[in-house]
Design a protein around this nucleic acid. Structure first.
Lengths: 238, 238
DNA sequence: GACGACATGTGATCGTCGTCACCCCTGCCT
DNA sequence: AGGCAGGGGTGACGACGATCACATGTCGTC
């Protein structure tokens, strides 16, 4: 399945092209060519840090393979997970555009393949390929919406159940429909879920237990079944 | 001081031009001309709603005069204030670019003068004036950073004192330096501050009292004096 | 199979803050 | 002046969830 991919810079990221939303992949041909010439492909082990909060923008990253965690950390070590990025998604765009520091820290959750374009190269590319600018704006809009969703979750919910229900609804967006409801593979630990919804690990465990007891969800190993989305939506107050 | 401004669409928003950051004002001349031709100027009374959360994007708004509140509301009526916009700032840009609904509700806090450009007109304008696209991207980056700041405040702080300190630090950014420290006019009510930092009105009142007792701030009517920013920063854990 | 590392499950405790209830003050309207 | 509304101040109370502490489970490695 996973063909060996060389490190040489070659045709535009086949991995990405497979995904439905290979953001920079649906550009006009000449733009793609230019982009290919200035991008570097890197591979990172699990736990690698692409950039950290407050760092000056070095460039943009496009995730080709693997998953990356985008998080913010307070001085006392408390962490908020902004989102988990899937292949095809872009990182660091806003910092490169605005010239201001990265807002979050990007950490690989598994071995990753990542394309990188240096800031100067990327800005030059943008000034030449004006069509690409629209993609950038769309990307930034996506990021903004994600952040808004996070604010909604953290700011408007008044219980952990509500936030967890919201979180499960979001996570189940990509799940497959079966006769027992929607099935999703939950790759995050309770600890990480807690950081995503702003609560302690133990509380996540307890709330999960409560959901199971009330048959809102069913858990089989790392797979979660949601028999009825609407009950979850009720809990989420969406 | 405030010259009478007609409703006719004329030279590019003098009000905005006065402000340091009249976003769409520092565009090349031809772009400005085009923009002038497609924009409409409206005036709204206090409490008017420009758009609501979930509404399909009608267009972009540029605030010329007055202040506008950007907020999100839950089904039970709980509200989060994302930010208060000052003259020169843009609203609804991300929705217009992405074509997805507005993420927040925009309400005037006082009588406002607002420029409006219909979505179709704006998109056509952008496709013709590629230089403007960069401004759009910068704007979106700003919005994203604001949202991140909100997430940081709501997600990383573990006490109301911390969030209030953060909030005061942000608010005091535009304050004037005096011998007694920084002076800022606080135009928001305790209720609104509570909505901005995600806490109850009474708690805001109490935390303010605590800050006053510890001489972290001094309040004279609607003016707040911050003798020492660093103590506030310590409380904020920044 | 034994061990260690990490994830999950569960009880007990305690503080923060949301909620309710009420009072006071100021400004505004008539 | 009287009345009213909205903002601010304050006490009492209770719930939710953070925190600590420890038990159990699961997986990969030697």
């Amino acid at each position: 399945m996973a063909a060996p991919y060389g490190l040489e810079v070659s045709r535009s990221c086949e991995e990405c092209a497979l995904k439905k939303q290979g953001f920079f992949c649906n550009l006009p041909q000449p733009a793609l060519k230019t982009l290919d010439a200035i991008r570097l492909t890197n591979r990172y082990p699990e736990g690698a840090i692409l950039f950290v909060e407050q760092e000056a923008p070095r460039g943009v990253f496009v995730l080709c393979k693997g998953r990356i965690k985008l998080s913010m950390t307070s001085s006392e070590g408390k962490t908020v997970i902004l989102r988990i990025l899937q292949p095809g998604e872009v990182l660091g765009l806003h910092a490169v555009v605005s010239g201001r520091p990265y807002q979050a820290t990007a950490t690989t959750l598994e071995p990753c393949q990542v394309n990188f374009v240096r800031r100067e190269d990327f800005l030059r590319f943008l000034s030449q390929q004006s069509a690409a600018m629209l993609h950038v704006a769309e990307q930034l809009s996506n990021s903004y919406e994600d952040a808004c969703e996070q604010v909604r979750s953290l700011g408007l919910a008044h219980s952990v159940s509500e936030k967890l229900a919201r979180f499960l609804l979001q996570s189940s967006a990509g799940g497959e429909q079966t006769t027992q409801g929607i099935r999703v593979r939950m790759t995050m630990t309770h600890e990480e879920i807690g950081q995503a919804i702003g609560s302690a690990r133990e509380t996540v465990t307890r709330t999960f237990a409560e959901f199971k007891k009330n048959h809102v969800i069913a858990v089989h190993g790392s797979v979660i079944c949601i028999p009825d989305r609407t009950t979850l939506a009720t809990l989420a107050n969406t």
